[in-house]
Amino acid sequence: MSKVPLTVRGAEKLRAELNELKGVARPQVIKAIAEAREHGDLKENAEYHAAREQQGFIEGRIKDIEGKLSHAQIIDVTKVHADGRVIFGATVDVYEEESDEEHTFQIVGDDEADIKEGLISVSSPMSRALVGKSEGDVAVVDTPNGPRHMEILSVRYV
């Protein structure tokens, strides 16, 4: 399997979630299963079945996070010399001509993307239009509603 880009912050968030699942959630659900077993007949014990289902979700998420981290290529954008160009991990301030608004985006890995937080996936059409451009350039993003023109106001590597 190929490496998947991930920012340092994204890797830290995944590691924190993994530690929480392994150190807190997993022991809690194991305790809940043990307590439910003490109540007797497991066939009709809703608490037992709910705890086992929760255990399945936790174990699945642990495996998912471990897989993502094992295939991650963690990129520290503060140590990359990009000469003012938009690259993976860069934070970009843009002016959108069509809406007459300014936006700030950070280009992140697919698993980190959250448009409400201003985190856009490196594989999104917007990222593909921005990557490689510099301050002052205009990126054109093709959308279902027509092209969007975004002038790059600044590029930061935070």
Rank of each mutant, 00 (worst) to 15 (best):
F88Q: 06
V94I: 12
S121E: 10
A113W: 07
E117L: 15
E97P: 00
T104I: 12
G118A: 10
E112H: 10
E117G: 05
F88V: 04
T91H: 02
S99G: 09
Q106S: 05
I115L: 13
D83R: 05
G89H: 14
P125Q: 09
L119D: 09
S99H: 08
E102L: 02
E97M: 05
R128W: 02
E98F: 00
G89Q: 14
R128M: 06
D83K: 09
H103R: 11
V108Q: 12
H103Y: 15
K116H: 13
G84I: 01
R128E: 06
P125I: 09
E101I: 01
V122C: 05
D111C: 09
S124I: 07
Q106V: 10
G118I: 07
L119Y: 15
V122R: 06
E102C: 01
G84H: 03
I107G: 06
A129N: 01
S99I: 11
I107C: 05
F105L: 06
L119H: 15
Y95M: 00
F105G: 00
T104M: 11
G89E: 14
G118L: 05
H103K: 12
H81Y: 00
R128V: 05
E112Y: 11
D100W: 03
T91Q: 13
D111K: 06
E117C: 08
K116I: 01
V122G: 04
V108Y: 15
A129D: 00
